[in-house]
């Protein structure tokens, strides 16, 4: 069974795409350095950089004007339709999750989103992924080739990945391709990405129990005093207390810090999935029955503010000595 990898070189998270796909290939035991990676990019000055970390050695770089799903899809379908691979892998970011499903449809194949693991033999592939809001894991069989998978987010880089000595790249230029007709105007506001959270060693995560925006702002101060990055659960972001790029969980950042201090979060699987790769989890919550307390390494049952104030004081004291 042969496969291809499709990456988005226009995205600031390109390096994460490479490392998570590599790790997935290794853990699925299907690492084939001779497989091809297709990369869509729009900054030719940076294209050499794009070739440095790819999961496979054969590369096809396709220059486009900017990343629009409709454009990328039609180019990809056009390129691949004559001679499709058996399996296509897409990273689990926004672009990859969309592309996998739509591309599969266009090639008459089958797709699965947010795949955690893959088993395959000559005839079929089986994948697992989270279902029931992450409470359960489901195993799925895909029925038609090409199989198009987007990966679950938060697949951690694999330390054993071998170094690729030499990469061979071919280039296509599709930058003349016009913007899709349905778009009248398009503007992008570059946001601080989730990377800061995803690369932090120490993260403070605030949940709905922080109650309001003022408390979020205070939490920001406390987190910086502790030297931690700050993230929040979905309700906190959707209530407008915190910006969306602070969101941790199934639909936000998947973090893997050494320490995660979870304050006033209930710990539903959708959120917990975002922090469960933390090495140590500390929960502070007034409710001992809440899921986060059972899923933490250490828990304090109390008002988070009072505990946090004392923690910042203690850490501050130690810093001054």
């Amino acid at each position: 069974m042969n496969y291809k990898v499709v990456l988005n070189g226009c995205s600031p998270n390109f390096s994460n795409q490479c490392s998570s796909v590599s790790a997935f290939l290794i853990s699925s035991n299907i690492l084939d350095r001779e497989a091809q990676t297709l990369i869509f990019y729009n900054n030719s000055a940076a294209k050499l950089k794009l070739t440095a970390e790819t999961p496979t050695s054969l590369l096809h770089l396709i220059e486009i004007n900017n990343y629009e799903a409709e454009t990328v899809l039609s180019i990809l379908a056009e390129l691949e339709k004559p001679n499709p691979a058996d399996l296509y892998l897409f990273p689990g970011d926004y672009a990859g999750s969309e592309l996998a499903v739509r591309f599969a449809y266009r090639l008459g194949g089958s797709s699965l989103a947010a795949v955690e693991s893959l088993q395959m033999d000559q005839h079929q592939i089986k994948c697992t992924k989270g279902v029931y809001n992450g409470y359960l894991q489901g195993t799925f069989k895909l029925s038609k080739k090409p199989y198009c998978l987007s990966l679950a987010r938060g697949i951690l880089p694999n330390r054993d990945s071998q170094v690729i000595e030499k990469r061979e790249a071919v280039y296509s230029d599709r930058s003349e391709e016009r913007q899709p007709a349905y778009i009248v105007k398009r503007t992008v506001e570059k946001a601080e990405s989730l990377d800061e959270l995803e690369s932090a060693k120490f993260v403070v995560a605030g949940g709905r129990g922080i109650k309001n925006k003022d408390n979020y702002l205070k939490l920001q101060t406390s987190a910086s005093l502790l030297g931690a990055a700050l993230g929040v659960s979905r309700p906190v972001a959707l209530n407008g207390w915190a910006p969306l790029n602070k969101l941790i969980g199934a639909s936000g950042a998947i973090i893997n810090p050494e320490i995660c201090l979870a304050l006033a979060v209930s710990g539903s699987p959708a959120f917990f999935g975002g922090i469960e790769k933390s090495r140590k989890i500390i929960a502070i919550n007034t409710d001992p029955q809440t899921a986060i307390v059972n899923n933490a390494d250490v828990a304090v049952i109390d008002d988070y503010k009072a505990v946090l104030d004392e923690l910042t004081r203690l850490i501050g004291e130690d810093k001054n000595h």
Partner: peptide
Amino acid sequence: WDATDVAKERAEIVE
């Protein structure tokens, strides 16, 4: 009715 319910209610009232 716990602290989470109270917080959820507060946000919903505002919105």
